[in-house]
């Protein structure tokens, strides 16, 4: 592909991204209530997918237990807003804080396991937390509890109004997670993460602080997952252990989204979430088969193009649509030492 065609494709991609963002901003005025509810779900899942990609795709922490933090966020939000009677709008950031606090002991447990065992280890921890949530009688025990009408009405007296409010909260959470994670990836830290993604040992050799970055990514993801949990609780209007800590919704789907879209790229989770919602809206009638299609598709992706659909497209593009790496400096000019490693060790 000629350079000019490539650059044209890049700008088309960026234009599509901005058009998508513009539609999301205008959505409350454009769509019906059912579509708004679907878009809210889209934004929550996008947030979770971006975070799983950061943790598994860049920091190489292949966790199968991230749904625990969504559940903790959901329960914490319910606890603050309904049981402690704190202003629900304040309960949302508090839910993020609680998810962050829980991330510290969880990390202390699962980081003791070597990579291959960490996946199932994180699952055990998530299962334990879910079962423990089922023992909280104030939260309805194992069968869960609905949010009282008085609290629900704070978000809008009429359903339409309430859906719009919840949509804006989900939009804010997704925007915050995308923009802040993008800034993180643009920073010196992001350069180190890209190096880990490309070659862990090599990254360690050139002085990337592997364990420090792992801890940072894990703790970075938790509060955002907690925020997503609060949004999801607002949408479902209830908490229950199997639904709030749903491994299918917040881990299985998310892994498929990231793997199919493209793990280890910023565009991958976005593309994956869009594709996932298309597959689900057109194939949900076929029941269990849509799971089987997603499973086969993700195995095929791992075998054929481990960088996913975006990796396939990216082969033909000169640069990323969402730029997270900087262009290497021109040869011969003195440069800051830290800006080089990721590019030079990309090839094993």
């Amino acid at each position: 592909m000629k350079a000019s065609t490539g650059a044209f494709a890049i700008w088309c991609g960026r234009l599509a991204l901005f058009a998508g963002a513009a539609v999301l901003v205008a959505a409350p005025w454009l769509f019906r209530v059912t579509d708004i509810a679907l878009l809210t779900e889209f934004l929550s899942l996008l947030t979770i997918a971006v975070m799983w990609n950061l943790v598994a795709g860049y920091a190489d922490i292949v966790s199968v237990g991230q749904h625990a933090f969504v559940g903790i966020g959901a329960y914490a939000f319910f606890g603050f807003a309904v049981i402690a009677r704190i202003d629900p709008f304040l309960a949302i950031p508090l839910a993020a804080l609680v998810a962050l606090l829980f991330a510290i002991p969880v990390m202390a447990i699962i980081f003791r396991l070597r990579a291959a065992y960490l996946a199932v280890g994180s699952w055990v921890v998530a299962e334990t937390l879910m079962l423990a949530a089922g023992k909280l009688s104030a939260f309805g025990g194992g069968s869960g509890i609905s949010m009282p009408v008085s609290v629900v009405r704070i978000f809008g007296a009429h359903p339409a109004e309430r859906y719009a409010t919840i949509y804006w909260i989900a939009f804010a959470v997704a925007a915050l997670s995308l923009v802040s994670t993008w800034l993180l990836m643009r920073s010196r830290i992001g350069l180190g993460l890209t190096a880990i993604r490309d070659d862990e040992q090599g990254a360690g050799v050139v002085g990337v602080n592997l364990s420090g970055l792992r801890i940072l990514c894990f703790l970075w993801a938790a509060p955002f997952l907690g925020l997503a949990g609060a949004v999801i609780t607002l949408q479902k209007l209830r908490v229950a252990p199997p639904a709030s800590f749903s491994i299918i919704d917040w881990t299985v789907y998310v892994i498929f989204i990231v793997v199919i879209g493209g793990i280890g790229s910023f565009e991958g989770p976005i593309i994956g979430t869009v594709i996932f919602f298309l597959i689900r809206s057109y194939l949900s009638e076929i029941g269990v088969w849509h799971f089987i299609i997603l499973g086969v598709l993700s195995i095929a992706v791992v075998l054929v193009e481990p960088r996913g659909l975006w990796g396939l497209v990216r082969r033909f593009l000169p640069e990323d649509v969402i730029p997270i790496t900087r262009r290497p400096p021109l040869p011969g000019r003195p440069t800051e030492q830290a800006s080089r490693p990721a590019e030079s060790i990309a090839h094993e």
């Binding site: 291959a116 029941g287 799971f291 089987i292 997603l294 499973g295 086969v296 993700s298 195995i299 791992v302």
Partner: peptide
């Protein structure tokens, strides 16, 4: 590496579960 083997067996797990459900 660790990631591909986890993802493949994870996909297999979902396929088996839902194949049995179906």
């Amino acid at each position: 590496g660790v990631l591909p083997i986890i993802l493949v067996t994870f996909g297999l797990s979902i396929i088996v579960q839902n194949g049995l459900l179906g």
